[in-house]
Simulated assay, not measured.
Amino acid sequence: MSDLNWTLSVGMVPTGDLPELARAAEAEGWDAISLPDSVFFPEQVSADYPYSGDGKRMWAPDTDMPDPLVTIAALAAVTERIRFRVSVLKLPLRDPLLLAKQVSTLAVLTGERLELGVGLSWMPEEFRFTGTEMRTRGARTDEAIAVLRAVCPGEGPQWAEFHGQHYDFDRLIISPAPQRPLPILVGGHTEPALRRAARLGDGWISANLPAADLPAVIARLEELRAEEGRADVPFSVCVSPVGVDDAAGFDDLAAAGATDVWLNPWRFHAHAVADRETRLESVARFAAEFIRR
């Protein structure tokens, strides 16, 4: 088995089951846990969901979607080693300075086990209902990443200032702050998203792409990183592949340049709906079949 890192995706799991699941994943040798970000479920949406074949959301309105940052704080309190990733935080819906305070505190409380995945959000209603602008979401995301970099550069609390088109502040310190720079991973499959990851990210996150499509996307990402002069900078390529069902498939992804696999093991084991015991069994079974091999 290739030397991949393994991330347990726990989206849509009942919130109360997450602490036990996190402890089990850590005990079984998983490297990280990822949590999605969904602020709310609008009854009516005016755009198609980009990650399903029919453009429909594939979860019920009352499906548990706990705030990822609050949840990570709770899960970090009952674990010691396993890392936590947000996949992905809808960055332009949030004020970046207030977010910087949250993630800086969370990075310290987790023992710097936090990696922040960021994306744009596809849903017009999320922008309209939160009073943010969808038209400028790309430019504001770029600036927000720069704000997070300035406030969480490593080596603890540091003076920072930022003067951009959308965000502007004079010298300030946010404390506490991590001793290492906060890793920021960028999600998305479009050309602008890949360029943003290549230019600004410490890694890239895919979302449910067919495994057969991933080598071409990873190759394009490598081209863009070379154009940005960042080909030699450490970079995580995090894939959530569709259509992989054996070790050879994971080895092929590693050969294509993937460094991390993010997946939901009970769905990998063909459990469309899983209860608590099924999830725990799948976490252990996948670890035995793949992670510890």
Rank of each mutant, 00 (worst) to 15 (best):
A150C: 04
R137K: 13
D168T: 04
T71H: 10
P181E: 12
G257H: 13
L18D: 04
P234H: 09
G201D: 06
E161L: 08
S104V: 01
R81M: 00
F268Q: 04
P92N: 12
A231L: 09
E277D: 15
E20A: 15
N208C: 02
D246C: 10
E222P: 07
L114H: 08
M12F: 14
A254T: 05
D17P: 02
E133D: 15
G249W: 01
K90N: 13
W30C: 01
M58G: 10
S34L: 11
L18K: 06
G117W: 01
H166F: 15
F162L: 02
A272W: 11
S9P: 09
T71C: 08
R137L: 01
G11Y: 11
W59S: 12
V151M: 14
E222D: 15
F169I: 04
H163Y: 08
T278M: 05
E28W: 02
A211W: 00
F268L: 10
L106A: 00
G201C: 10
E28R: 14
L148T: 08
D142V: 07
R267T: 13
T132G: 11
P153F: 03
L8Y: 06
E26F: 05
V237M: 03
E133R: 15
I82V: 13
R220Y: 08
P14A: 03
G154S: 01
V45M: 14
A47N: 09
E161F: 08
R293Y: 05
V13P: 05
R267N: 12
M65E: 09
W6Y: 14
D17N: 12
D3T: 07
C238M: 14
F41I: 03
L214E: 11
P96N: 11
A272N: 13
A256S: 13
R292D: 06
F290E: 01
V118E: 09
D17W: 15
G29A: 06
R195G: 02
